[in-house]
Design a binder for these strands. Structure first.
Lengths: 170, 170
DNA sequence: CGAAATCATATTGCGCGCAATTGAATTTTG
DNA sequence: CAAAATTCAATTGCGCGCAATATGATTTCG
């Protein structure tokens, strides 16, 4: 059926594989490039990139539970528990059991953790220069990526307060 | 000096921190969202996402050294060596010492590795649907991300065949 | 009230990702 | 030609990232 007729579809599939490769590589290696760019700037402070993300989140909203942090960062306790212990050991945060509900652990910034916010501005300048993009471009890129990530996540997460979806379940 | 004069600059810095947070989170979580989306599709084949990226690269160019693969994927031997051993154990690739230069190891696709390319097309369709973006949008996003990653990398890598840079060294 | 279900965090196991080191092969140099 | 420098791959150690499981604490229900 597709012996030598107009445009066999194998090339089309290959083109799609090429597109897949391009986007997979692009996101994968952009994330790692970010990581590698931040690393030498964070190292003097004894911080890793994921730990810096936790601080970024806490600078916006201090005193949150592990669960709340995990939802903001899309990370589970398996990742956060040891990470937060290390952040505590470095003196950036404090972990205190909620007296009212002993299941929960409250994460709060220490003085050192709050002071680090000032240093972050300097780090930020370096990244801005390294990226070679304007603030507008970076903002637009962030928006596009967030939309993409949200779409992908919608496949996996149980629709938190979105559509009523299937009311018949259970 | 900046007691109540026109527009103190603390808010501006905070706005930049917010931008930083947005882009850091966006790339970070887009990468993880990709990972999580591919995982259930690759699991039946006994593949991880980084292993799939290696296959994508080999489908384009088979029979390459570990070093060449590492340059294409921006990964070093510390990551690739164990990963390639697992890919060999799963039967997707073969690792053979180069007879001419015994330092090098050639990575080649097995029959199973080549056959997997066909299944990849099906996986691709799923991702396309999950992303909720058109091929054009995904392509544009990939291009923007690649440019960003290249800019970031330019800070770290010693300019491979780019500008002559500093000819005086050594 | 008390057993069962649910919830929040911690732990374990495995696969990256990367810096630093090692070991063997090859090239460069004296 | 032999010693030194370089190159390629593998190994080690540590920090994620996530699934699966474990451990208490709290809520729900009978």
């Amino acid at each position: 059926m597709a012996d030598k007729g107009a445009i066999p579809d194998i090339p089309k599939d290959d083109a799609m594989l090429a597109l897949d490769r391009q986007l997979c590589f692009a996101i994968y290696s952009a994330a790692h490039a970010f990581n590698r760019t931040y690393k030498p700037l964070l190292e003097p402070h004894g911080l890793t990139y994921p730990q810096y993300l936790v601080l970024l989140s806490l600078w916006q909203d201090d005193a949150r539970t592990v669960k709340a942090l995990g939802e903001a960062l899309h990370l589970d306790s398996g990742t956060l528990s040891p990470l937060l212990k290390r952040l505590e050991a470095s003196g950036y945060i404090a972990r205190t059991r909620d007296r009212a509900d002993e299941r929960q652990v409250l994460i709060t910034l220490t003085g050192k953790g709050k002071e680090m916010k000032a240093s972050a501005h300097g780090i930020l300048m370096e990244i801005g220069k390294a990226s070679g993009c304007s603030a507008e471009e970076l903002g637009a890129l962030g928006t596009a990526l967030k939309a993409l990530a949200d779409n992908l996540r919608a496949r996996h997460e149980p629709d938190p307060a979105g559509q009523p979806e299937n009311v018949l379940a259970k």
